Computed example of a mutant assay.
Amino acid sequence: MSLNIQVTRTQHPKEKPDPNHLGFGDFFTDHMFVMNYTEGQGWHDPRIIPYAPISLEPAAMVFHYAQEMFEGMKAYKAPDGRVLLFRPDKNIARANNSNDRLCIPQIPEEDMLQAIKAIVAEDKDWIPEGKATSLYIRPFIIATDAHLGVRPSRTYQFYVILSPVGAYYKEGLNPVKIYVEDEYVRAVKGGMGHVKTGGNYAASIKAQMIAAERGYTQVLWLDGVHRRYIEEVGTMNVFFVIDDEVVTPALNGSILPGVTRDSAICMLKSWGIKVSERQIAIDELFEAAKEGRLREAFGTGTAAVISPIGELNWEGNIAPINGGAIGEISQKLYDNLTGIQLGLIPDTFGWTVEI
C-alpha cells in the first residue's frame, strides 16, 4: 500500500438511521477520506477525518467552471460478515477517464482503491443489512484554486463519502414509467456524456422536472444531433428485449460506459442470450412495441442495479411493456447481480473484492 493514511476519529458518533427507511443519499457516515493535490507536489496528505462541511474560497474554480468529477459504487455486507465491493477496478478506471477529459490529475488506481477500502473499513458498521440496502460510495474531485479565469486548476481535493441507502426509486423493483425527451439534449459526441461530471446531470434536471410533472419517473434521452437514436435513461443505461435479442445502445462517446451495463452484458452472454450493442431508433422501438415484439425493457446502474421499465411515452404515444410487470430476463439479472454483490451466490466472474 503506497498511501500512509492518517486517521482522526470522530468524538461525536452519529445515530444510525432506521435501515427500513433509508431512501437514497439522505444519510452520511461518521467519516470521510480526503487527499490534496498541489501542482509540482502531486497527490498528498491522505487522511480520514470526521464527516464535516468543506471550507472553500468563494472564488474556488469548481464553483465557476465546474471542473469536477465523481463516481458511484457500493459496499455490501455478506451473510458471513464479509464486506464486499463490486468491480471497483471498473469504477476507478472510469474515474481516471473522467479525470483525463476534465484535465484533472489522475490518481494511481491502487491509491484510489486503497482510499476506498480504508474509508469503508473505518465505517463498516454503517453498512445496512436490510433488503435492497447497501453502503453507497461517492468518490469525487473538485478544483480548489481561488481564481477567476478558464484554465485547469493547480490544486484539487479528492474526497470519498459514504451513505447507507435503500432502493434508488420508490418503486423498488416494480417497473417505472419513462418519458422520452425530444426537446432538450443531455450530451453529444465530443462532449462530456461519456464521463461522470456534474454538468451532465445539471443539464438533465429541466427535462426530469417536466417528466415528473407528467407522472413519469425518469427521462429517456435521444441523441443530440438527429433527436432519433436512443442513448440512455437519466441515471441508467438502457436495454430492450426485442423478440429473442437483448439490444442496448452502443457506446458512442455521449453515453456513459456503465459498470452495471457491462456486467449485465457479460452475464447475458454467459447464459447464451444474444446481445447487440447498436444504434436503436425510437421509431424502431415503438414499431416493435406496436407489433408485440418488445418483450421487456430495463435500466442498469449502480444505484438501482436493475430497474424494469413498464411504460414509454414518446410524443403522446404510449407503449406499455410486458403488461407493466417485471420481465423474466430483468428479474434473473437482478437476482444474479445482487446475489453476487451480496455474496449469496458464487462469483464465477471474479467481480467482488473483499475488504
Score class of each variant (00 low, 15 high):
residue 271 W to P: 06
residue 206 K to A: 13
residue 240 F to W: 11
residue 15 E to G: 12
residue 250 A to R: 13
residue 128 P to A: 04
residue 90 K to C: 10
residue 38 T to A: 04
residue 29 T to K: 04
residue 280 I to M: 14
residue 75 A to F: 13
residue 324 G to C: 05
residue 206 K to D: 02
residue 310 G to M: 02
residue 28 F to Y: 13
residue 328 E to V: 15
residue 81 G to E: 08
residue 34 V to H: 09
residue 124 K to S: 12
residue 21 H to M: 08
residue 173 L to N: 00
residue 202 A to Y: 05
residue 300 T to F: 08
residue 198 G to S: 13
residue 341 Q to M: 15
residue 346 P to F: 04
residue 264 A to E: 14
residue 260 T to C: 09
residue 65 Y to T: 02
residue 236 M to A: 11
residue 303 A to Y: 10
residue 288 A to G: 01
residue 238 V to D: 07
residue 132 A to V: 11
residue 205 I to R: 06
residue 71 E to G: 11
residue 187 A to Q: 13
residue 277 E to A: 04
residue 101 R to E: 07
residue 155 T to N: 08
residue 191 G to P: 14
residue 307 S to V: 03
residue 146 A to P: 10
residue 220 L to G: 03
residue 57 E to F: 13
residue 228 R to E: 15
residue 84 L to M: 11
residue 111 D to F: 07
residue 3 L to E: 09
residue 85 L to P: 12
residue 253 G to R: 12
residue 128 P to S: 06
residue 216 Y to S: 03
residue 65 Y to P: 01
residue 306 I to F: 07
residue 294 L to C: 01
residue 118 A to P: 07
residue 44 H to K: 14
residue 174 N to Y: 00
residue 348 T to F: 02
residue 37 Y to G: 01
residue 143 A to I: 05
residue 21 H to W: 07
residue 148 L to D: 02
residue 168 Y to L: 08
residue 240 F to D: 03
residue 351 W to P: 02
residue 122 E to F: 00
residue 166 G to F: 04
residue 9 R to P: 00
residue 235 T to Y: 10
residue 251 L to C: 02
residue 350 G to C: 08
residue 310 G to Y: 00
residue 217 T to F: 00
residue 305 V to L: 03
residue 124 K to D: 08
residue 266 C to G: 15
residue 28 F to P: 00
residue 103 C to A: 15
residue 213 E to D: 14
residue 183 E to C: 12
residue 335 D to C: 09
residue 135 L to H: 05
residue 241 V to R: 12
residue 275 V to Y: 06
residue 285 L to N: 03
residue 181 E to F: 11
residue 143 A to Y: 05
residue 77 K to Y: 12
residue 145 D to F: 01
residue 57 E to H: 15
residue 259 V to K: 06
residue 132 A to P: 02
residue 49 I to A: 00
residue 51 Y to Q: 07
